[in-house]
Design a protein around this nucleic acid. Structure first.
Lengths: 125, 125
DNA sequence: TTTTTGTTACGAAACATTTCGTAGATATAT
DNA sequence: ATATATCTACGAAATGTTTCGTAACAAAAA
Protein backbone atom coordinates (compact mmCIF):
# COMPACT_ATOMS: atom_id res chain seq x y z
CA UNK A 1 0.00 0.00 0.00
CA UNK A 2 1.46 3.28 -1.12
CA UNK A 3 1.67 6.18 1.32
CA UNK A 4 0.68 9.35 -0.49
CA UNK A 5 2.77 12.43 0.14
CA UNK A 6 0.62 14.90 2.08
CA UNK A 7 0.37 18.48 0.86
CA UNK A 8 1.28 21.35 3.19
CA UNK A 9 -2.28 21.89 4.36
CA UNK A 10 -2.78 18.16 4.85
CA UNK A 11 0.38 17.93 6.90
CA UNK A 12 -0.85 20.64 9.24
CA UNK A 13 -3.97 18.61 9.90
CA UNK A 14 -1.98 15.43 10.46
CA UNK A 15 0.16 17.27 13.00
CA UNK A 16 -2.89 18.20 15.04
CA UNK A 17 -4.17 14.63 15.03
CA UNK A 18 -0.76 13.13 15.76
CA UNK A 19 -0.32 15.50 18.67
CA UNK A 20 -3.82 15.37 20.13
CA UNK A 21 -5.27 12.12 18.86
CA UNK A 22 -8.61 11.45 17.19
CA UNK A 23 -10.81 14.52 17.06
CA UNK A 24 -13.54 16.47 15.32
CA UNK A 25 -13.26 18.87 12.44
CA UNK A 26 -14.08 21.70 14.81
CA UNK A 27 -11.23 20.82 17.14
CA UNK A 28 -8.76 20.61 14.30
CA UNK A 29 -10.02 23.83 12.79
CA UNK A 30 -9.68 25.69 16.04
CA UNK A 31 -6.10 24.54 16.38
CA UNK A 32 -5.26 25.60 12.85
CA UNK A 33 -6.78 28.99 13.58
CA UNK A 34 -4.19 29.62 16.25
CA UNK A 35 -1.61 29.83 13.51
CA UNK A 36 -3.65 31.08 10.58
CA UNK A 37 -7.27 32.06 9.94
CA UNK A 38 -8.94 29.11 8.24
CA UNK A 39 -12.62 28.69 7.42
CA UNK A 40 -14.43 25.77 8.97
CA UNK A 41 -15.56 24.29 5.67
CA UNK A 42 -12.05 24.59 4.30
CA UNK A 43 -10.78 22.33 7.03
CA UNK A 44 -13.78 20.04 6.61
CA UNK A 45 -13.20 19.70 2.89
CA UNK A 46 -9.54 18.92 3.34
CA UNK A 47 -10.30 16.27 5.93
CA UNK A 48 -12.85 14.70 3.61
CA UNK A 49 -10.30 14.63 0.81
CA UNK A 50 -7.76 13.08 3.17
CA UNK A 51 -10.29 10.47 4.20
CA UNK A 52 -10.86 9.71 0.53
CA UNK A 53 -7.11 9.15 0.16
CA UNK A 54 -7.17 6.92 3.25
CA UNK A 55 -4.86 9.28 5.04
CA UNK A 56 -7.46 9.71 7.79
CA UNK A 57 -9.90 7.25 9.32
CA UNK A 58 -13.39 8.39 10.22
CA UNK A 59 -15.93 7.32 12.79
CA UNK A 60 -19.27 8.49 11.42
CA UNK A 61 -21.59 6.63 13.76
CA UNK A 62 -22.62 9.95 15.24
CA UNK A 63 -23.54 13.09 13.42
CA UNK A 64 -20.32 14.73 14.45
CA UNK A 65 -17.62 12.64 12.85
CA UNK A 66 -14.41 11.75 14.61
CA UNK A 67 -11.29 11.66 12.46
CA UNK A 68 -7.91 10.15 13.18
CA UNK A 69 -4.61 9.88 11.36
CA UNK A 70 -4.46 6.64 9.38
CA UNK A 71 -0.78 7.02 8.54
CA UNK A 72 2.10 6.76 11.00
CA UNK A 73 3.93 9.90 11.97
CA UNK A 74 7.33 8.23 11.65
CA UNK A 75 6.56 6.84 8.21
CA UNK A 76 5.47 10.19 6.85
CA UNK A 77 8.39 11.97 8.45
CA UNK A 78 10.79 9.48 6.90
CA UNK A 79 9.20 9.82 3.48
CA UNK A 80 9.23 13.61 3.57
CA UNK A 81 12.74 13.75 4.96
CA UNK A 82 14.11 11.54 2.17
CA UNK A 83 12.61 13.78 -0.47
CA UNK A 84 13.66 16.96 1.32
CA UNK A 85 17.21 15.69 1.74
CA UNK A 86 17.52 14.99 -1.96
CA UNK A 87 15.82 18.13 -3.17
CA UNK A 88 17.49 20.58 -0.80
CA UNK A 89 20.82 19.06 0.23
CA UNK A 90 21.48 16.82 -2.78
CA UNK A 91 21.35 13.86 -0.40
CA UNK A 92 24.04 15.00 2.04
CA UNK A 93 22.68 14.04 5.44
CA UNK A 94 25.66 15.46 7.29
CA UNK A 95 25.17 18.86 5.71
CA UNK A 96 21.54 18.84 6.75
CA UNK A 97 22.44 17.78 10.28
CA UNK A 98 25.04 20.49 10.65
CA UNK A 99 22.55 23.11 9.52
CA UNK A 100 19.86 21.75 11.82
CA UNK A 101 22.05 21.71 14.89
CA UNK A 102 23.66 24.99 14.00
CA UNK A 103 20.40 26.89 13.94
CA UNK A 104 18.28 25.53 16.70
CA UNK A 105 18.48 25.55 20.43
CA UNK A 106 18.58 21.88 21.30
CA UNK A 107 18.79 20.77 24.93
CA UNK A 108 21.76 18.98 26.45
CA UNK A 109 19.69 15.85 26.82
CA UNK A 110 18.86 15.80 23.15
CA UNK A 111 22.46 16.43 22.17
CA UNK A 112 23.52 13.51 24.36
CA UNK A 113 20.97 11.34 22.67
CA UNK A 114 22.39 12.25 19.29
CA UNK A 115 25.89 11.54 20.57
CA UNK A 116 24.79 8.08 21.63
CA UNK A 117 23.44 7.45 18.17
CA UNK A 118 26.75 8.58 16.69
CA UNK A 119 28.65 6.15 18.92
CA UNK A 120 26.36 3.39 17.81
CA UNK A 121 26.78 4.23 14.13
CA UNK A 122 30.53 4.61 14.35
CA UNK A 123 30.83 1.35 16.20
CA UNK A 124 30.40 -0.45 12.91
CA UNK A 125 32.96 1.59 10.97
CA UNK B 1 15.91 42.20 0.44
CA UNK B 2 13.58 39.28 0.82
CA UNK B 3 14.60 35.82 -0.40
CA UNK B 4 11.63 34.18 -2.07
CA UNK B 5 11.02 30.51 -1.32
CA UNK B 6 11.76 28.53 -4.49
CA UNK B 7 9.20 26.03 -5.74
CA UNK B 8 10.18 22.40 -6.30
CA UNK B 9 10.94 22.91 -9.98
CA UNK B 10 12.88 26.08 -9.23
CA UNK B 11 14.94 24.31 -6.60
CA UNK B 12 15.95 21.63 -9.10
CA UNK B 13 17.29 24.33 -11.39
CA UNK B 14 19.14 26.04 -8.56
CA UNK B 15 20.78 22.74 -7.65
CA UNK B 16 22.19 22.37 -11.16
CA UNK B 17 23.59 25.90 -11.10
CA UNK B 18 24.95 25.60 -7.57
CA UNK B 19 26.67 22.36 -8.49
CA UNK B 20 27.98 23.27 -11.93
CA UNK B 21 28.09 27.06 -11.93
CA UNK B 22 26.74 29.51 -14.48
CA UNK B 23 25.32 27.82 -17.53
CA UNK B 24 22.88 27.84 -20.42
CA UNK B 25 19.28 26.77 -20.49
CA UNK B 26 20.27 23.81 -22.63
CA UNK B 27 22.84 22.62 -20.13
CA UNK B 28 20.39 22.86 -17.27
CA UNK B 29 17.65 21.20 -19.28
CA UNK B 30 19.89 18.29 -20.18
CA UNK B 31 20.76 17.77 -16.54
CA UNK B 32 17.13 17.82 -15.51
CA UNK B 33 16.38 15.28 -18.21
CA UNK B 34 18.64 12.77 -16.51
CA UNK B 35 16.11 12.60 -13.72
CA UNK B 36 12.90 13.41 -15.51
CA UNK B 37 11.81 14.21 -19.07
CA UNK B 38 11.40 17.97 -19.28
CA UNK B 39 10.72 20.04 -22.38
CA UNK B 40 13.30 22.66 -23.32
CA UNK B 41 10.84 25.54 -23.29
CA UNK B 42 9.55 24.43 -19.91
CA UNK B 43 13.00 24.85 -18.43
CA UNK B 44 13.47 28.11 -20.33
CA UNK B 45 10.21 29.53 -19.03
CA UNK B 46 11.03 28.60 -15.47
CA UNK B 47 14.45 30.19 -15.70
CA UNK B 48 12.90 33.35 -17.12
CA UNK B 49 10.44 33.45 -14.24
CA UNK B 50 13.28 32.93 -11.78
CA UNK B 51 15.24 35.74 -13.39
CA UNK B 52 12.15 37.93 -13.00
CA UNK B 53 12.13 37.09 -9.29
CA UNK B 54 15.86 37.87 -9.10
CA UNK B 55 16.60 34.34 -8.12
CA UNK B 56 18.89 33.98 -11.15
CA UNK B 57 21.21 36.46 -12.81
CA UNK B 58 21.49 36.52 -16.58
CA UNK B 59 24.21 37.47 -19.00
CA UNK B 60 22.40 38.26 -22.24
CA UNK B 61 25.22 39.89 -24.16
CA UNK B 62 25.22 36.93 -26.52
CA UNK B 63 22.27 35.27 -28.13
CA UNK B 64 22.61 32.25 -25.90
CA UNK B 65 22.07 33.59 -22.40
CA UNK B 66 24.12 32.43 -19.46
CA UNK B 67 22.26 32.10 -16.16
CA UNK B 68 23.63 31.80 -12.67
CA UNK B 69 22.14 31.42 -9.21
CA UNK B 70 21.65 34.84 -7.61
CA UNK B 71 20.81 33.39 -4.19
CA UNK B 72 23.21 31.62 -1.85
CA UNK B 73 22.89 27.89 -1.44
CA UNK B 74 23.35 28.12 2.34
CA UNK B 75 20.72 30.82 2.71
CA UNK B 76 18.12 28.89 0.77
CA UNK B 77 18.92 25.67 2.58
CA UNK B 78 18.56 27.41 5.92
CA UNK B 79 15.25 28.96 4.93
CA UNK B 80 13.82 25.71 3.62
CA UNK B 81 15.12 23.73 6.57
CA UNK B 82 13.46 26.04 9.08
CA UNK B 83 10.11 25.63 7.39
CA UNK B 84 10.53 21.90 6.91
CA UNK B 85 11.51 21.44 10.54
CA UNK B 86 8.39 23.21 11.76
CA UNK B 87 5.99 21.62 9.31
CA UNK B 88 7.25 18.07 9.54
CA UNK B 89 8.88 17.68 12.97
CA UNK B 90 7.02 20.37 14.88
CA UNK B 91 10.34 22.11 15.41
CA UNK B 92 12.22 19.21 17.03
CA UNK B 93 15.69 19.39 15.50
CA UNK B 94 16.89 16.37 17.44
CA UNK B 95 14.13 14.21 16.06
CA UNK B 96 14.99 15.28 12.55
CA UNK B 97 18.66 14.61 13.12
CA UNK B 98 18.00 11.15 14.50
CA UNK B 99 15.88 10.30 11.47
CA UNK B 100 18.46 11.71 9.08
CA UNK B 101 21.37 9.81 10.58
CA UNK B 102 19.32 6.68 11.06
CA UNK B 103 18.43 6.38 7.41
CA UNK B 104 21.46 7.41 5.48
CA UNK B 105 24.91 6.01 5.01
CA UNK B 106 27.12 8.77 6.26
CA UNK B 107 30.90 8.38 6.23
CA UNK B 108 33.07 8.19 9.35
CA UNK B 109 34.59 11.55 8.46
CA UNK B 110 31.22 13.18 8.34
CA UNK B 111 30.14 11.60 11.61
CA UNK B 112 33.32 12.89 13.23
CA UNK B 113 32.57 16.34 11.93
CA UNK B 114 29.12 16.19 13.48
CA UNK B 115 30.64 15.00 16.76
CA UNK B 116 32.95 18.00 16.79
CA UNK B 117 29.99 20.27 16.34
CA UNK B 118 28.25 18.53 19.25
CA UNK B 119 31.30 19.09 21.46
CA UNK B 120 31.32 22.72 20.52
CA UNK B 121 27.59 23.12 21.22
CA UNK B 122 27.74 21.29 24.52
CA UNK B 123 30.70 23.32 25.63
CA UNK B 124 28.35 26.15 26.47
CA UNK B 125 25.81 24.05 28.41
C1' DT C 1 -43.36 24.50 17.59
C1' DT C 2 -40.23 27.65 15.62
C1' DT C 3 -35.80 29.55 15.36
C1' DT C 4 -31.04 29.31 15.72
C1' DT C 5 -26.88 26.85 15.62
C1' DG C 6 -23.90 23.14 14.08
C1' DT C 7 -22.86 19.56 10.96
C1' DT C 8 -21.74 17.06 6.44
C1' DA C 9 -21.44 17.06 1.36
C1' DC C 10 -19.72 18.83 -2.49
C1' DG C 11 -19.35 21.83 -6.70
C1' DA C 12 -16.94 25.49 -8.12
C1' DA C 13 -14.03 29.49 -7.73
C1' DA C 14 -9.50 31.18 -6.68
C1' DC C 15 -4.85 30.61 -6.65
C1' DA C 16 -0.26 28.51 -7.57
C1' DT C 17 2.74 25.84 -10.36
C1' DT C 18 4.20 23.50 -14.38
C1' DT C 19 4.04 22.44 -19.15
C1' DC C 20 3.38 23.34 -23.87
C1' DG C 21 2.91 25.58 -28.42
C1' DT C 22 3.92 29.17 -31.54
C1' DA C 23 6.11 33.29 -33.31
C1' DG C 24 10.08 35.67 -34.47
C1' DA C 25 14.99 36.30 -34.52
C1' DT C 26 19.78 34.64 -35.17
C1' DA C 27 23.18 31.36 -36.13
C1' DT C 28 24.83 27.35 -38.65
C1' DA C 29 24.96 24.04 -42.35
C1' DT C 30 24.10 22.78 -47.09
C1' DA D 1 21.31 31.96 -50.90
C1' DT D 2 18.48 28.87 -48.84
C1' DA D 3 17.29 25.60 -45.57
C1' DT D 4 17.78 23.83 -41.09
C1' DA D 5 18.61 24.17 -36.30
C1' DT D 6 18.73 26.85 -32.11
C1' DC D 7 17.42 30.38 -29.25
C1' DT D 8 14.28 33.78 -26.67
C1' DA D 9 9.69 35.55 -25.44
C1' DC D 10 5.49 34.77 -23.83
C1' DG D 11 0.46 33.60 -23.79
C1' DA D 12 -2.26 30.08 -22.54
C1' DA D 13 -3.47 25.41 -21.33
C1' DA D 14 -3.02 21.83 -17.97
C1' DT D 15 -2.50 20.42 -13.47
C1' DG D 16 -2.42 20.68 -8.47
C1' DT D 17 -3.91 22.81 -4.16
C1' DT D 18 -6.69 25.61 -1.21
C1' DT D 19 -10.65 28.24 -0.14
C1' DC D 20 -15.37 29.36 -0.27
C1' DG D 21 -20.44 29.25 -0.71
C1' DT D 22 -24.70 26.86 -0.55
C1' DA D 23 -27.85 23.05 0.22
C1' DA D 24 -29.68 19.68 3.19
C1' DC D 25 -30.35 17.94 7.42
C1' DA D 26 -30.05 17.31 12.60
C1' DA D 27 -29.63 19.04 17.11
C1' DA D 28 -30.34 22.41 20.54
C1' DA D 29 -32.43 26.54 22.23
C1' DA D 30 -36.14 29.73 22.63
Amino acid sequence: MKIPKPTDAELEILQVLWEHGANTVRFVNEHLNEKKETGYTTTLKLMQIMHGKEMLSRDDRNRTHIFDAAVKEDDIQKELLDKFLDATFRGSASKLVMHALGNSQTSKEELDQIRQLLDQLEGGK
